[in-house]
Amino acid sequence: MSQGTQLHWQRAVVKSRRAAADEIAEIVLAGERPLFTEPGAHIDVRIAPDMVRSYSVVEGAVDGSWVKIGVRRSPTSRGGSRFMHALEPGDHLEVTSPLQNFPLRVGAPRYVLLAGGVGITAIHSMARVLKRLGADYQLIFVGRSRPAMAFLDELHREHGPRLRLSVDDEGDVLDVKGLLGQVDHSTEFYMCGPIRLMDAVRRAWIERELPMPNLRYETFGNSGWFDPEEFELRIRGSERHTVVSPDESILEALERVGVEAMYDCRKGECGLCVVKAEQLNGVIDHRDVFFSEAEKSTDTKLCVCVSRVASCANSAGAGAEDSASTRATLTLDFP
């Protein structure tokens, strides 16, 4: 209903665990407080003091008394999925309340839901909501082989002809371009699956010039092209200058030294905090979604709430050098 994006940890108990497919466990958890969830939400599970993993919520009780998650055992697991697959009813663990980075919106003329492998865990409940609403939707489920694909029986039962399977080992490989060829400008497209599949869809989507807001997938924020590093910040026509540390934004640095700047969202969306870059030694690491790609490439303005400056030396994994000699500088031009 109103799950947020901030972490709120609580204890939960494992109610059941069963195999939903080869290598995929379906685990039902009950929290000490109600776990209200909605399609597209995930919970974070603390595997070890310094290890947290996110798992999509397959479904949850309306009264919040339980949530069901799906966990794939990764062959390269560093402990997360192995830990989850070893859980037994009655085991306790620490979880967050459901977090929403991938909300479904009702009201679009048409929907395409694309799930690859364990991605079905996030897509399953979206399909159920759209069915209950009588929406026009298509559910495409891509997998290596049928035994590796979770929930096949119930998906068939609930969605009938709206479900399309694409099974690799049956020689039925999804034709992404062909699929997007049938998508029009009003269709909302939700996807969850392997990066390679999602990249193929993203590329074909851009090629078709379909509206970007209609392509929905779970994002974990724009983390930029460069690791955050410290850089020097100057103000044109002012003596004031400071060093912005890696864990501080330009906006915070401006506030710290008493320069009044306009801002609102503080997450790179609204564009109220845009300031002209007067002089630049380094490159701007644009981390906003306000500027277009073309605007970002000119490096003349930036959203000071999220964007940073990186020294060229530090790009693409250059070796550590003396930070003072390579430190980038930025001079802002406030009108």
Binding site: L133, E188, G271, F290
Partner: peptide, 28 residues
């Protein structure tokens, strides 16, 4: 806004704030 309540056009900028939307209520 489109029928899902997503903003599809904003004046004087090249992009659209992804947070910009209004509720689209279920209708039958």
């Amino acid at each position: 806004y489109n029928s899902a309540g997503r903003c599809t056009f904003m004046p004087a900028q090249k992009t659209i704030n992804p947070s910009a939307m209004v509720n689209s209520f279920p209708v039958v």
